[in-house]
Write a protein that binds this DNA or RNA. Structure first.
Lengths: 341, 341
DNA sequence: ACCTTAAATGACAGCGTTTTCATAAGTCAA
DNA sequence: TTGACTTATGAAAACGCTGTCATTTAAGGT
């Protein structure tokens, strides 16, 4: 039943002997069951369960020059956005013969490059990578790789193979337009960790406020620092110190937005009466704060799921062609923090 | 430099030839560099970098009957607590030849058992598992496994091999005592997903309020549901409906605590004047809410790091004996939400 | 210079699969 | 009945590495 340690673990050959077939047939039984006769299949099934056999992945990988591992590269493990992606990806491999290997590159292109190299050397089934700003060397490796690549989170990139995500520019633009439609005129932007997706959100902001009368960047406060609730408060303070008449902020993400709300509470500034707030990502908590905070919902869990599904289909030869692009879109979730003036 | 696909990837033998040594020596160069002469080392290093050689993990695993994979089993991928643990674990393998394979058992013992079986079949370097309430079959497999096991998060379990965590009973008891010392008398308990660790926290609560005059369980509100901010608000509403004179709540975790705070804000109940709130875990956000929420800090990141370190040391034969127990403790972080009456 | 001991290296035989490619046994039309 | 296919099965040869053990080389002691 289980690897008890005292007995050596059974091999294909053991199963073959017990089932009175050759090892090749047992191997086929696992890989192409339809090519094994009904009768043999029955005997093999029984032998497998009697012996508690489980295939040796290392041997399989060595012989076939291919692992069943899907590499999943994310820039952070402590960011709620990627947790949901991971969670979706793990949900999707559940029950398949594939497994996921995570790589955390901590927002550092050089670490990403190193991880890509390492992963590729293990001949993975495929690679799912968050984003598209690899180093040139990394991009080259990916292009030359003999496995499929899915880039997720962002559609505004040079795609290497498949791309799955959304337009952060459009999403941010829609959010800021939402603020304008609700009557807000002097809209600030708070941004942390200005990675390419954040840059795009800033671009979207610029697009939406282009025709407003104040100098474009006077209400933009960003930092390369990692995002945090605490930072949200600090950035808001900076913004208010510089431009006290600001009547709304669009935040790069929900941590900042929550931090901004808390800062308002500390200052006794009413939200949205004195300041409207809109976040990005729509984490669960946004609906619960007081007042609840409007945000841009993106489909993180689905993105994880879909990336794995796409990979599996592509590998199964289901005709998922290179160059495929899928936009999962977004949704402006309107809550009290952006109530119309 | 990189696997370009058109050329077959170099093997040990290729490196050996280029460096004018035998394959075994190259293998040794990677595994026990100190056993290879200075001169050979130099030539091998050069050959490796010239050819862009990287060891084939599958072949290595097959030959040595041992992978370099540390399995890490967690009950959730969307819970901040485990994200930090993961993050710590990944930080610690960084730069070592080991890698981490994550398993998500979604708080389901049966999935945990299946994962343990699967992982063990791959002959991992070791297994790091959150918690200690495996099914009997799973526990038996772990006991019989020929690799080291580290159980993390909780010291109040029947340990299989190494144990690393804290006493949730003591931590909760200390938190509730903290509330009492600050002058709160009618202390409630809110709990979600009553897993063994949550049960222990409840036990700690009971210990701390045992001598209070009200019937023990009248202020305890729990649910098997997964924890969320929203749930915190709901549970608090239940509590206040049943026992309106409650003057403090200890929450099972920070999501609930934040939800409780937001509920108070919605109701216009001042915290802590009308109700004190204490959470558990001390997520980053707790310091930022208004008022900031007291919580029990536990060392999640360190737990991830340390578990991997322990595993590596144990495997390296650094005399980490079976039965080792390490208590990482906790820390009551006092904030405005539990200001003395 | 010679013997003893330690350090460095290599030959060889697997590790447990999968991949050909060949063979044996059925199936079907003429 | 026969030849032409199709289907099911096996034999043998990799796959790229490491463990074991024997051998060579260098170092140390007298």
């Amino acid at each position: 039943m289980c690897p008890t340690g005292n007995k050596k673990t059974p091999t294909l050959a053991d199963v073959a002997e017990a089932a009175n077939v050759s090892a090749v047939t047992v191997s086929r039984f696992f890989r192409h069951p339809e090519k094994v006769s009904e009768a043999a299949r029955g005997r093999i099934e029984q032998a497998v369960s009697e012996l508690g056999y489980a295939p040796n992945a290392a041997a399989s990988a060595l012989a076939s020059r291919r692992t069943n591992i899907i590499g999943l590269l994310v820039p952070s493990l402590t960011n709620n956005v990627f947790n949901d992606v991971l969670s979706g990806a793990f949900d999707e491999v559940q029950g398949t013969p594939y497994s996921i290997q995570i790589g955390n590159y901590r927002y550092r292109p050089s670490e990403e490059e190193a991880l890509i190299r390492t992963f590729l050397h293990q001949k993975p089934l495929g690679l799912v990578i968050a984003g598209g700003n690899q180093t040139p060397a990394a991009a080259e490796m990916l292009r030359a790789a003999d496995c499929r690549i899915v880039q997720i989170m962002d559609t505004e990139i040079d795609g290497i193979d498949m791309v799955l995500g959304l337009s952060h520019t459009e999403a941010a633009e829609a959010a800021v337009r939402h603020l304008r439609e609700r009557g807000y005129q002097r809209i600030g932007f708070l941004g942390a960790r200005m990675d390419p997706r954040s840059q795009n959100r800033l671009a979207g902001y610029h697009r939406a406020v282009a025709d407003l009368d104040d100098p474009t960047d006077s209400r933009v406060f960003t930092t390369p620092e990692a995002s945090s609730t605490e930072l949200g408060g600090r950035l808001l303070s900076d913004l208010l110190a510089a431009m006290p008449d600001t009547d709304a902020v669009f935040c790069n993400n929900d941590d900042l937005a929550a931090g901004a709300l808390f800062e308002c509470q500390r200052r006794g500034m009413r939200v949205p009466d004195r300041l409207a707030i809109c976040g990005f990502n729509d984490l669960e908590m946004m609906a619960q704060t007081c007042p609840p905070i409007s945000s841009v919902r993106i489909f993180r869990h689905e993105m994880g799921r879909r990336s794995v599904r796409l990979m599996i289909e592509a590998v199964a030869g289901a005709g998922v062609e290179r160059g495929l692009r899928e936009d999962l879109g977004f949704e402006i979730v309107e809550r009290a923090s952006t109530r119309p003036r």
